[in-house]
Design a protein around this nucleic acid. Structure first.
Lengths: 139, 139
DNA sequence: CTACTTTAATCAGAGCATCTGACTAAGACA
DNA sequence: TGTCTTAGTCAGATGCTCTGATTAAAGTAG
């Protein structure tokens, strides 16, 4: 079986489960919004960087940030180092969702480890981490 | 780093590259269409099965199959075993794209193996294959 | 300092993908 | 026969994403 599909299936499983957990906890957010939100750094991130990291156009990133801003998960503040730019920052409301996501992630990892074993899990992580070096355009 | 993202990044890299290769070879197809097309079995597959496998609704799958049919990559034939159902089958035109996709896939795997080594590649495949058992809703 | 080039972001408009809900027709079965 | 389930479609709405054009600020070469 094709390794692309082999990667895609668990990747989507993670995405779906985390999104479902966050939504179940009362946060209203979509997959696309979450993909952008996830990339916002602790001190705020520029729209252009978000777009690159999430691999969408600036317009798309802007559209999603607009929505996230409207429902209060991010705010845009001027970038003190560049008058053209603005920094997208997480609000406290968004930060409350982080532990919910982390807990679900931990649950998933525990299930996986249960199924494939600790050793294989570590090998998986190592291999993926190295692959990131050549496939992550943001790294 | 979150294993969901770790999986997602190379998974998308594969998708993008294969699609690009197929498009560059003159086939006009989109990512969403390809995801459905990929699941069509050698003897044809029902729309409902395609929808499940690709994890979209029947309506979405139907919409994509309509387009694929219009440009001649699939055909719908009556299912001899069930009067309600129809089988979606690949046309010869679609089959011509298969080697193009396979060659690109082989190229990607070679690059990856070059980077992470044969042993890790085998471990990766093994771990993913096992994860499929618990994350692939179609398996 | 001025003029040109690049970069960050937005606006406008379009197309594609996806969903929910309602419906039709055929099969399964009591 | 009548009821329930299943395969697929129709209609309508929303969401996501893109290309192209624009504005404003920064950087740079003369």
């Amino acid at each position: 079986m094709n390794i692309g599909l082999l990667l895609f299936i668990p990747s989507r499983a993670v995405e779906n489960r985390i999104l479902a957990a966050v939504v179940a906890a009362g946060f209203e957010i979509t997959q696309a919004q979450a993909r952008v939100l996830m990339r916002v750094g602790p001190d705020g991130t520029r729209l252009t960087e978000l777009a690159e990291a999430a691999q969408v156009t600036k317009q798309t990133a802007g559209f999603l940030v607009d929505q996230l801003e409207k429902v209060g998960y991010v705010e845009r503040v001027p970038d003190p180092t560049d008058g053209r730019a603005r920094l997208v920052r997480l609000t406290d409301k968004a930060r409350e969702a982080v532990p919910v996501a982390n807990e679900e992630m931990a649950r998933i990892e525990a299930e996986w480890e249960q199924h494939i074993g600790k050793r294989r899990m570590a090998q998986l992580r190592e291999a993926l981490d190295m692959l990131g070096e050549i496939t992550d355009p943001y790294r």
